Amino acid sequence: MISFKPLLKTLIDKNLSKTEFVEMMKISSSTSAKMWRNEYIAMKIVDDICKKFECALTDVIEYVPDEQK
């Protein structure tokens, strides 16, 4: 599964709340809800996040094998 846990750490490092992040990125509420539930979202959004924060993909998402849920 894909986890957005690294994004939460990135937000903490940048002193941003989830709400501030969603507003800054202009992400829909349904997309943000999917992110916080570790569900799939469009790669374009992940790309936009990496561009905005000038960070690596690993600062946004990580792969977690299903047996580690």
Results as ranks from 00 to 15, higher is better:
K14N: 15
L16W: 04
R37C: 05
K9E: 10
T58S: 15
Q68I: 04
K44E: 15
S29H: 15
S29R: 14
M43I: 11
K51M: 13
L8S: 09
K52Y: 12
E62D: 07
T31R: 04
E23G: 12
Y63D: 13
C50G: 00
Q68L: 14
D48I: 07
L16H: 06
F21C: 12
P65Q: 06
S3M: 02
D47H: 11
S3P: 01
E23L: 13
Y40I: 11
M35Y: 05
V60L: 07
E54H: 07
D47L: 11
M25N: 13
A42Q: 14
I2A: 00
V46A: 04
W36H: 02
V60H: 03
D13W: 02
S17F: 02
I61T: 05
K51R: 14
K5R: 04
D66H: 15
I12A: 15
A33P: 05
E67D: 15
M43D: 14
K9W: 02
P65C: 08
L8T: 05
S30M: 06
E54K: 03
A33H: 11
F21A: 12
M25P: 11
K52D: 09
V64A: 04
Y40V: 10
N38D: 08
D47V: 10
D48Q: 12
D13H: 13
S30G: 08
F4S: 00
I49D: 05
W36T: 04
D47T: 11
I49Q: 06
P65S: 04
N15V: 06
E54G: 08
I41D: 09
S28P: 03
T58Q: 15
K26Q: 12
K69R: 12
F4C: 01
V46K: 03
E39K: 13
L11Q: 08
I27W: 04
M43N: 06
K52V: 09
F53W: 09
I2M: 03
D47E: 15
I12Q: 15
K69Q: 13
L57K: 09
L7N: 02
V60D: 06
S3Y: 01
P6G: 01
E67T: 10
D66A: 15
S30D: 10
F21N: 11
S28K: 07
V64Q: 09
E20W: 01
E62S: 05
F53L: 10
T19K: 15
E62C: 08
S17R: 04
N38Y: 00
K18V: 10
I27Y: 02
K52M: 11
V46G: 05
M35Q: 04
A42K: 12
E20V: 05
T31A: 11
P65F: 05
P6A: 05
D59W: 07
L8D: 06
I2K: 01
L7R: 01
V22M: 06
D59A: 10
K9Q: 13
A56F: 01
T10L: 08
I61K: 00
S32M: 09
I41C: 11
K69F: 09
K51I: 14
F53A: 04
M35W: 02
K51C: 12
K14D: 11
P65Y: 03
K5Q: 07
